[in-house]
Design a protein around this nucleic acid. Structure first.
Lengths: 205, 205
DNA sequence: AATATATTTGAACACTGTTTAATAAACCAA
DNA sequence: TTGGTTTATTAAACAGTGTTCAAATATATT
């Protein structure tokens, strides 16, 4: 069945060509300015062709969002080297913030944009990417609790709180709501308030 | 000058008629589905007329965003009755979360959407609405610090951290990222993690 | 009444995501 | 090689978007 194999290969090739062009345009100009016609132009196909490989725009951006989680996962991998749970939690926060700063549009797509969630809703799928990342955080928080951090607190609540705090800092910056802060630039305030958050947890000990 | 007075009056009347229709449509269907043509239809004028009263769509939604801050301000007003600073901080968080839950699209516009910030950028204006709200929070945090909370922390960093934590919880819920949490519904987790955050601050004392 | 000003309009421009009928290409069996 | 079938690709169309602008209408002033 070598022929149908090649056909299959050609099909996935054009599919990934579309995806590659979409990602390039997306990283250059964001989701709103990346239109189906732009993507079609970039790969020199008609707009209609794209709908033979993807059911809609949301599905394309869901796949790009997944690539974002792969990149974040890669960066998180070094955390295995950090033995101390609380040090690991701190390092995790720093990696998360660094990722957000260096991939603003990607972070936006992963944690703010409707598109990937709309796709999951339509397909009746779970948010596996978010789930896996949250699981890693939960595990680290649990280890911290076993060492006496977050005394008398509930694991799930603390984990979500930690995520929320960092996500909040990052998104207020991303969406230009940090102008109201004195004495710090928008980029600075994210870092100093993260340190303040860490200090708050540490001082409990 | 009675005639020009009446003309002035009529002009502001149509202006606020546009605004009223825009707000109604916005609260019913969100910003994306509220088009200039929708608004024009609702008030039975042509689309072009709207551009004699507003320079663009962003300016309309900046004004609606301001109304949102007025509503939030009204709700915050009862905080004057809460003497204890930390109780006031807790109450403030609860009001903020309640507002976000009861006015999801408005919260989105106020703290997430690009439109009002794009308008301020174009007009070279300050974000007065956000500034005023942040000032109230800063003042409350300062009072808390004077009572021994947030020991050895910087005021600005702590204030932004508190805002970020609550904003993070609210927006992760708003943008449907809470599915990953176990044992709690998306709505529940916001409340329990807020309690966890309060506990974290309290336990320092 | 004629002129000047202000307001309103509808059409146009350049876009958007998506669907579809028609066409072209590739494949397979006789 | 031919004929039939499947697959891939396209252009055009649909219904929408924000915005601009010349022209038409309405109002006010001289």
């Amino acid at each position: 069945m070598g022929i149908s194999d090649r056909k299959e290969r050609e099909k996935t090739e054009l599919r990934s060509l579309i995806l590659k062009a979409a990602k390039k345009l997306f990283l250059e100009q964001g989701i709103e300015k990346t239109s189906i016609r732009n993507i079609a132009d970039a790969i020199e196909y008609s707009p209609g062709t794209i709908y033979h490989y993807f059911q809609d725009k949301d599905s394309i951006f869901h796949e790009i969002h997944t690539e974002g989680f792969q990149e974040l996962g890669k960066r998180m991998a070094i955390l295995h080297e950090v033995e101390n749970p609380f040090e690991r939690l701190k390092a995790m926060g720093k990696i998360y913030i660094k990722f957000a700063f260096e991939n603003t549009d990607m972070y936006d797509l992963m944690f703010l944009k409707q598109a990937p969630m709309d796709f999951l809703e339509k397909m009746d799928c779970e948010w596996d990417e978010g789930q896996a990342t949250f699981d890693v955080l939960r595990h680290t928080v649990q280890s911290c609790m076993e060492q006496g951090y977050f005394k008398d607190q509930e694991l799930e609540a603390v984990t979500f709180m930690v995520w929320s705090a960092v996500h909040g800092m990052v998104t207020l910056n991303l969406r230009h709501r940090c102008k109201v802060v004195n004495a710090h630039t928008p980029d600075e305030i994210v870092h100093v308030s993260f340190q303040a958050f860490i200090k708050l947890i540490e001082q409990q000990q």
